[in-house]
Design a protein around this nucleic acid. Structure first.
Lengths: 186, 186
DNA sequence: ATGGTCATGTAATTCGTTACATGATTAT
DNA sequence: ATAATCATGTAACGAATTACATGACCAT
């Protein structure tokens, strides 16, 4: 079982859903296309880690609703005890920022503005989700309880929001310095 | 040309070095193993984006020192103007944190302590490098100048340091909440 | 009509990791 | 002796993206 398989189990442990739902839900934590998710679900099913029920829909296409099995839950719990591999960040923008000295102020500006747009959108989405979760489960969140699925979810949402804000701040400051640098006579 | 190829050009644009040196230097910005770097360098050489000189060493094995060509610099500059793909983060630890509600306090503790150790080490390394760069180029950094390779490098180092500190803070707070949660009778 | 969402799959290709291979020097 | 660093490469495998394929429903 690879990390994607455990990622799918992580979501199915919270609620049963279709491959399509998983594809959408999984994105913030582990990006994968449907072409990778469907075969992985088949494997998990063959191994007995998940099972599924065919749900017929009149307006939309039929779907397979997957659920985690006891065996799947055990595998997921065992995985929690294993050491994790180092975080892996691949960001083309950072690579370009590193070589901006070879470019012009215009390229620099566009590079950062693109990324600012991306993080603004992301921030809004994340803040909306956190808001929903907090109003829906206000009572549960007074006291930290790791054994609550809501608590761990909120922890990750908060983290995503703080990092997004930080990324935005970095972009804004860099952009400001680019404008300063552009105005300076050389 | 893929992103790795541009990553290699980004480093060679600053100074000529061997595939081995590139393998070490590239890690903070784009992780790649030597088995991927050597063939990519061969391709870049075949395309005329880089060339190399064989340097004989008496104490160590001989090496090929690669340099970027004018064609390579042009390709790199053109790449700066292209839109960047979204950042891609793969972090097993976050996935496990999301499912910690299924585990025990001990698994949670170990998960975070592992990550704390990782970021402490990383922070130290980054702060050391930034220190060296700043003392070596103090005068250049008074006024922001994007067209200076030192400036863009410092920007990325600062960013890496801030995010590492943030990650650490998040881990510490989470760990504290885990201890609180463990003490509470259920 | 044109494009978007819902829904599931396979095939081809590229990217990335692990393993195989070699060999000298230096430190513990 | 044993492991680590320097140095370069190939082969096999697994992971991930892109493209191919189908089809209904809904909004503009």
């Amino acid at each position: 079982m690879n990390t994607l398989a455990f990622a799918l189990l992580s979501f199915l442990a919270r609620r049963s859903m279709s491959g399509y739902d998983l594809m959408l839900a999984i994105q913030p934590l582990w990006q994968a296309k449907h072409s990778q998710i469907y075969p992985t679900l088949s494997k998990l099913e063959a191994e007995g880690h998940v099972d599924f029920e065919r749900v017929l829909q009149h307006d939309k296409p039929d779907k397979k609703v997957y659920s985690i099995t006891p065996k799947g839950t055990e595998a997921l719990q065992a995985w929690l005890h294993e050491p994790s591999s180092d975080p892996n960040i691949r960001d083309e923008m950072l690579l370009k920022a590193y070589s901006l000295w070879l470019g012009d102020h215009d390229a620099a500006r566009r590079l950062l503005e693109e990324r600012i747009a991306y993080f603004r959108k992301r921030l809004q989405r994340l803040e909306g989700i956190l808001d929903d979760v907090q109003t829906e489960h206000h009572s549960e969140l007074d006291v930290p309880d790791i054994l609550s699925p809501v608590f761990t979810r909120v922890k990750l949402l908060e983290r995503a929001i703080t990092t997004a804000r930080l990324e935005l701040d970095w972009c804004y400051e860099f952009l400001k310095q680019i404008e300063q640098s552009a105005k300076k006579p050389r």
